[in-house]
Amino acid sequence: MKITEVTALVTGGCSGLGHATAIALSQAGAKVCLLDMNEALGQQRVEELGTENTLFVRADVRNEDEISSAIRQCQSRFNHIHLCVNCAGIAPAKRILNKENAPAPLQDFQHTIDINLVGSFNVARLVASAMATQSAVNDEGERGVIINTASVAGYEGQIGQTAYAASKAGIIGLTLPMARDLAPLGIRVNTIAPGVMGTPMLLAMPEHVQQALSHNVQFPKRLGLPEEFAKLVIHIAQNAYLNGETIRLDGGLRMPPK
């Protein structure tokens, strides 16, 4: 898949990993549709990336009507959607029992699952439906690529990460069966499982906190860069033989209990 001929839809595209991905795709020549809840920031990102090849749509990944409308707007503006990158998500931390042994509210767990797991599935299924009607982009019959974002917490969830780890493990579990479901249509599905990434939120923390977070990274011994996540997105899009795979992007990190 040639990035210069790609239209990409990026959820959570106005901040963090999604923002870095949108920048890299735009700089590589792709047209980019940003989906996010922050309307003011969305308009700012469009101005930064260029109004000609960038579109912002406010949409909640959990809402079928809003995502369907966003897909239609993207198609109306750019005709096709070749690449979908799901970066929208939340990362709450709460132990199952607090210090008084009271259980965590069930709605907090459900909220995380709804955004991270159900939201990613909702976007993927609706984008896949749009991709299925498109013409193939190459001789192998490829119509599109879907990239979901998991986390190393999906393998090694830490104390207080039950909801987050469960949501990311679910995304890892979706990867192969979703790829198998969509293979006859020429749509590939892969997942990236980042380690501790240097998003603006983490980089704003004191240096000693950043060092503690990167302590268990093998090499290079630092936080991952959002730009490195974006580079992997582009490689997955370009490498037609990558399918049904979850790729750890973590510098050899294996998360300790806390």
Rank of each mutant, 00 (worst) to 15 (best):
L34Y: 03
D114F: 08
G50S: 04
A153F: 02
F109D: 01
A28Y: 10
I192R: 02
N86D: 09
L41T: 13
E207T: 05
L213W: 07
Q238G: 07
Y155W: 14
G195Q: 12
A20Q: 03
P206G: 09
I147D: 01
A240E: 03
K2H: 13
M1A: 06
V137D: 01
G18K: 07
A8V: 07
N243V: 05
G144M: 03
N98D: 03
A102G: 03
R45C: 12
Q238A: 15
S68F: 11
F229V: 10
G173K: 13
A24R: 11
S69K: 11
I71A: 05
T175E: 12
C14A: 14
R77M: 06
I172D: 01
S129I: 11
N148I: 02
D65C: 04
Y241Q: 14
L203Q: 11
I192F: 09
A70K: 08
A93G: 12
L182T: 05
K99L: 12
Q107S: 12
A136E: 10
P194W: 10
V233R: 00
A240S: 10
E5L: 06
A70W: 02
P220E: 09
P257Y: 05
V61I: 14
Q158T: 10
A102H: 11
G244W: 01
H80A: 06
I147W: 02
I81A: 04
N38P: 08
L97D: 00
N63R: 13
A230C: 05
R58T: 15
S76I: 00
G170R: 03
R222Q: 00
T175P: 14
D36N: 10
A124C: 12
A102P: 03
A204D: 04
N38G: 10
N216D: 07
A240C: 01
G186Y: 00
I192Y: 10
Q107K: 13
S68I: 09
R95Q: 13
G224Q: 07
T246G: 09
Q218I: 15
A169C: 04
G12R: 04
L83F: 01
L17D: 02
N38I: 07
S135Q: 15
F229G: 08
T133G: 02
D60N: 15
L174W: 00
I81R: 01
A153D: 10
A22E: 07
A24K: 12
R222T: 01
P177A: 08
A30T: 07
F219K: 08
A165E: 00
V10N: 05
S214R: 07
N148G: 13
G16E: 00
V32H: 06
G244P: 02
D60L: 14
E140W: 08
N38S: 14
Q43D: 14
P226Q: 13
A102W: 11
P105M: 02
Q158E: 15
A163G: 06
Q161W: 09
F121R: 01
E64T: 14
L9P: 04
L225H: 11
G18D: 04
Q218V: 15
L97K: 05
L34P: 01
E228L: 05
L232T: 10
E156C: 04
